[in-house]
Simulated assay, not measured.
Amino acid sequence: MKFKSILTTLVIIAIANTLHAQNPIITDVFTADPAPLVYKNTVYLYTGHDGATTEDTNYKMPDWRVYSSKDMVNWKDHGSPLSPSTFSWATGDAYAAQCVERGGKFYWFVSTFHKADNNSKGGAAIGVAVSDSPTGPFKDAIGKALITNEMTTDNKHSWDDIDPSVLIDDDGQAYLFWGHASCKWIKLKKNMIETEGEINTFKPKNYIEGPWVYKRKNLYYLVYASAGTKPEMIEYCTADKITGPWTYQGIIQENVPNSFTTHPGIVDFKGKSYFMYHNGALPTGGSYRRSICIDYMYYNLDGTIQKIIQTKEGVKAAK
């Protein structure tokens, strides 16, 4: 009898671990655009939040969310500490964003839309929020947008300035990358809330949006959603310098289930590399009701990235 009880307990634990590890990793709300950050032996995951109904035919993204994990399997929900309403100048939805730490403060770079007013005709814009904690509360760091653009000639909102990604290089210089249709970058001052120098624009092969920039060993990586096909795939370039030139390396993630977009978030944690993305695999999910997944990421000896294998099982708990 005692043996059966122990066996039953082990089976329950095994089932529970499997359920926690399966993709998608968050099942109670729809989440998109993953942006991981490692801080003090914990992974903080910053996400978008899809609030569209099954009948909606466009995005409804009311806020950004934060989750944390010490093993990449069990995730704690920290709620929604930031939304476009945090920014007095903003309107519209909470699009892709990334949070980085510097000097004990947390800078959350976000893409949303700018109100049409005396300072702007509107359009996509990038703001920055700041907090003393990775889980907030966050506040507008500068009281205005960091990056703005204007309305297009056909009087529709321009989507040029979306999807920020930030790298703080080994010498302390910070860079902001972003952009739809073309990729842009600019230096950030040490305070992380002011830009320095001119905006640089370039066009990686098949680039459409969602850049994720990072450095591994002596190589810089620019990973992005590609316009080579619909639905999107993930492709990447590498460079010896953050300023380029960038060498195209190919496709690393094929189309995802039930979503015409995908979005990369990459992190090293406890000796392993992880690739985060979103798909529409949950029941009632879809292109406007997406969910974040995690799978392992592997490199070749020359630093190139192996193809990502998308799984339903996800990853095992990091030891």
Rank of each mutant, 00 (worst) to 15 (best):
H263N: 03
Y248D: 06
V213F: 06
T247Y: 12
A225M: 08
L222S: 08
K241Q: 12
E232D: 10
G244C: 03
G228D: 13
R216C: 02
W246M: 03
Q249L: 01
Y221M: 01
V213L: 06
P204G: 01
V223H: 10
E232S: 11
I199Q: 15
E235D: 11
H263V: 00
Y214W: 11
K205R: 15
K184A: 11
S226Q: 03
I234G: 05
G271I: 07
C237V: 13
R216E: 02
I251E: 15
T238K: 00
W246G: 02
M192F: 03
W185T: 14
I186W: 13
A239N: 04
Y214F: 15
Y274M: 02
P231D: 06
E254V: 05
N255D: 08
N255G: 08
E209G: 10
G228T: 12
Y221V: 06
G271R: 08
A227I: 07
K187L: 04
W185C: 13
N191W: 14
Y221H: 04
F269K: 07
G228N: 09
E235Y: 09
I193S: 12
G250K: 13
Y274A: 00
F269L: 05
G265R: 01
F202M: 10
Y220A: 04
I251R: 15
Y220K: 07
K270S: 10
N191K: 14
V267H: 02
I208R: 04
G197M: 11
I199C: 14
K203H: 10
S273D: 14
N218D: 06
P204Y: 01
F202Q: 11
A227N: 13
W212V: 13
V267W: 02
D240C: 03
M276F: 14
Y207H: 06
S273M: 07
T262F: 05
P245A: 08
P211E: 00
K184P: 07
G210D: 08
T243C: 05
T261N: 15
I193A: 11
A225K: 04
G250Q: 15
Y224S: 03
N206A: 05
I234A: 02
E209N: 09
P204V: 00
Y221T: 07
I252Q: 00
E235N: 12
Y248T: 02
E209D: 09
Y221D: 01
Y274L: 01
Y221I: 05
I234T: 12
Q253P: 05
A225H: 09
D240T: 13
E254W: 09
N206S: 10
K203Q: 14
N200Y: 08
E196T: 07
A239G: 07
E196A: 14
Y221L: 03
P204E: 02
K184R: 12
K187F: 11
